[in-house]
Design a binder for these strands. Sequence first.
DNA 1: TCTGAAGTAAAACGGATGTTCTCTTTAGCC
DNA 2: GGCTAAAGAGAACATCCGTTTTACTTCAGA
Lengths: 215, 215
Amino acid sequence: MVSKRLSEKQQRILGFLQNFLSEHHFPPTVRDIQRGCDISSTSVVDYNLQVLQKSGHIRRSPDISRGIELLGQERGGLLRFPSPRRVPILGAIAAGQPIPVFDDVPVEDRETVEVPQSLAGNTNQMFALRVRGQSMIDALIDDGDIVVIEPVTRVRDGEMVAAWLKNEQETTLKKLYRENGRIRLQPANRTMQPIYADPNNVEIKGRVAAVIRNM
Amino acid sequence: MVSKRLSEKQQRILGFLQNFLSEHHFPPTVRDIQRGCDISSTSVVDYNLQVLQKSGHIRRSPDISRGIELLGQERGGLLRFPSPRRVPILGAIAAGQPIPVFDDVPVEDRETVEVPQSLAGNTNQMFALRVRGQSMIDALIDDGDIVVIEPVTRVRDGEMVAAWLKNEQETTLKKLYRENGRIRLQPANRTMQPIYADPNNVEIKGRVAAVIRNM
DNA sequence: TCTGAAGTAAAACGGATGTTCTCTTTAGCC
DNA sequence: GGCTAAAGAGAACATCCGTTTTACTTCAGA
């Protein structure tokens, strides 16, 4: 029943199965899997499905189209679909205020928000903040918007970050570029002017993964 | 949407669907239903499935084997998973182009996006559009953003709508206000100026329910 | 009784789809 | 190198299965 490690391809298939099942409510065909997992031949899909069946991850009904069932103990019974990606809304953010730490927030009855599945990052660590005021308007972020933040300290050039400017005592959401010894903080709105700052004055609090605006 | 009473045969089919779904975890074929409900012909099954779809009890994916999904609250048995709020992304939207109709979009490989649960509207009818270009910048909507649209023709004052300006041949996303005989289209960005239009020149395509920006 | 709409029957078409077959490639091992 | 098992490629096959077409039946309402 239990067996050795799944290959990368088999894990990919398993993931695709979950996604497909949550989007449609019926299983995919062999050829759906082939396309979705970028596999060259249907026979390869069939081969790996056999492995997955032997290892107890799925069940197949022979000669039946889409006859694939996801077994998996961690989502047994009613819970057979991937849990929605929910992240807690920890508080508000506004220019001139530090980003709140999330330790002292009561774990229960936290408001949460569902984020698009395409955010493949480690959802566990993510959190969201509700924007207060229109100080982020140059980043195309309005009062009331929700920003989803992945708490990382290292970011690539061009990524939107939540940055704390120490001297100015101000939090801002901007795209970050490193340019010969200084940091350029570029507003999302191309008509606005960038800010140039000393690296020592910038503390990266996290990467902005998404912005959600309900209306 | 709502329709008259279901025939005895249609109720039988609905019941069979529930049973089948709870035994196997994939939908039945037309011929499975034929046998299971003791129906003489596949065309009769097809006919009644069409009726059930029109009445909103099921959803069918054309040309897809077992492409039947049970809708509504009467989903019984194991099938009671919380339906993820997924809406299809039907295409792109840009100023100067009409909003695409969604009938001629291939059902398969439609991209979808998960929307926050707080959108309590009838998610079935909703769809999403990917914004192309920066023509919506005054509505705080950037190139690449995804707007979730609920197709309604009646909106309340102050709601953000997708409006088609007939004379200008242009689609725009703005807040709508009715003011003594004319319509005011107010950009979301308060620093921008509103547009005043004749009611006959404005065709409301839907209400903007949310904006999602991935980064 | 006539008539049109709803429902049923049976068969056939053609694309969808699981499976199999043969052949190659890769990886570990002596 | 040479051998073997695992894995992949590509094509072909046989069936599965949604859909269409044509014809027939039932039934309510004018």
